[in-house]
């Protein structure tokens, strides 16, 4: 009984092993069966339309990417709270004492975050033109 819940994760482990095995195996086989080209300094250079590359090879990124990344993190944390909510939802809905609480708490949680989403839209946080 105690081990059975852990055993449910065995397919996950198998999936990971197969996925890594497939990726690593394909790469290994291509090394053994394929031919490797000669590497020269000119070949390893970054390709910029045939001309010699100028400037930094790592350009600085626009702050717009940062905005999208931060908003992703915030909504990602929201998902973390949805997880246990979804697990207990049916149980607590069946219980008469908690049925209003379980629905109401998540609706108000979502509502407050939806206000933030509307703010982001209104302030054109996703507008990439300017």
């Amino acid at each position: 009984m105690e081990q059975s819940q852990l055993m449910q994760y065995l397919p996950v482990l198998m999936l990971i092993v197969v996925a890594i095995g497939f990726a690593a195996g394909t790469l290994t086989i291509s090394v053994f069966l394929g031919q490797s080209a000669k590497r020269t300094k000119a070949k390893d250079m970054a390709y910029e339309c045939g001309a010699n590359p100028i400037g930094e090879n790592t350009p600085r990124f626009s702050i717009k990417f940062h905005l999208v990344a931060m908003l992703f993190i915030l909504f990602d944390i929201e998902v973390v709270f949805l997880y246990p909510w979804a697990v207990v939802y049916r149980d607590m809905l069946a219980d008469h004492a908690t049925r209003n609480l379980i629905l109401g708490s998540m609706i108000s949680f979502m509502f407050i975050l939806f206000a933030g989403y509307l703010y982001a839209l209104k302030k054109k946080a996703f507008d990439w033109k300017n």
Binding site: I63, K64, H66, M70, I112
Partner: peptide, 21 residues
């Protein structure tokens, strides 16, 4: 506290938009 978390996330959301726009 769970509801307060949503306010906290909202503050972060408004803050990052204010800072980077």
């Amino acid at each position: 506290p769970f509801e307060v978390v949503s306010v906290l996330l909202l503050v972060a959301m408004v803050g990052v938009i204010l800072l980077s726009k």
